[in-house]
Design a protein around this nucleic acid. Structure first.
Lengths: 154, 154
DNA sequence: GCTTGACCTCAATCTAGCTTGAGATTGCAT
DNA sequence: ATGCAATCTCAAGCTAGATTGAGGTCAAGC
């Protein structure tokens, strides 16, 4: 198996589309070198960078945030287990906060099922919804997921 | 306080912007009547519809899904507690699945912090990332990997 | 040496969820 | 009656995260 991967190889290995990989490169997630004929060549470690990106996306990180995480990886050498573990730990913190928030929302919702209110003034869910009002323009994936994400999984 | 609310009133009561409310109307979440001068007038029950929409959005429902839920509400009369409770119960189910999914992901991540792998085939997080392969438009490839791909290379 | 497929760039397009702006009208208070 | 804020419609713009297409090049097999 070759030292370096072509973009098609990388696409097959990660399940991403070629266009998505080019897009990610443009966003700074990857920095492949070029052949004399101008074709991209990726180090094998980039498979892992992309795996991380795919997982992180599901947890609600934007590409900009993912790029920031990946930037913490060492520059010259391939990342070690310890390098990746540091990133994983940060992700775990985020995951915990997300779970706590959802549990809170669930408990409030239970209260609301009793009263059937969903009233902005009386209902505990109000505070939850209030957060949405503060989010800026664009799609509000506050939880970081598209609707179908949790459908019959888990 | 008036029977019917102007769009500005509704915006103040919900924390939404006027433009967002108009947008939601266009998407079928609300159906205000009009004054002789063509201004919108909303029943007070619409405050609750919007509260629901805001909460549901945070839980990852798209506007189309929210519209579908709201469509289950009675047509002629204002919704009762029981009507809302039915919707809330469905939402709760989704919330539960979402929490379970995140907890699973967290547990897998804990395993990964130990090994530092984030490897697409060895890692339990793989299944999580697999979802990403199915999302979105365009051609996606199936994931298929060989273990050798992920060895640490200095 | 030709053909084919993978690759290249760049610009345009798409979905979701809104916001912003232009230009016109309404409605409440003085 | 007038003034001014609120409202109206409609079109265009924005962000995120990509995909799609046009037009062109590279590299390997026969």
């Amino acid at each position: 198996m070759a030292e370096q991967l072509s973009i098609g190889d990388l696409a097959r290995r990660t399940g991403l589309s070629v266009s998505a990989i080019r897009f990610y490169e443009a966003r700074g997630l990857l920095s492949p070198i070029r052949t004399r004929g101008n074709q991209r060549r990726f180090p094998r470690a980039d498979i892992r960078r992309l795996s991380f990106a795919m997982i992180a996306q599901q947890l609600g990180l934007s590409l900009a945030e993912i790029e920031a995480e990946l930037r913490t990886l060492p520059n010259g050498r391939s990342p070690t287990r310890a390098d990746w573990a540091m990133i994983s730990r940060r992700i775990r913190g985020r995951l915990d906060r997300q779970i706590r928030f959802l549990e809170q929302t669930r408990d409030r919702l239970d209260g609301c099922i009793g009263c059937g209110c969903l009233s902005l003034d009386a209902c505990g869910l109000y505070n939850a919804a209030d957060r949405a009002a503060k989010a800026g323009a664009g799609p509000r994936y506050l939880l970081g997921n598209s609707p179908a994400d949790f459908e019959d999984r888990a």
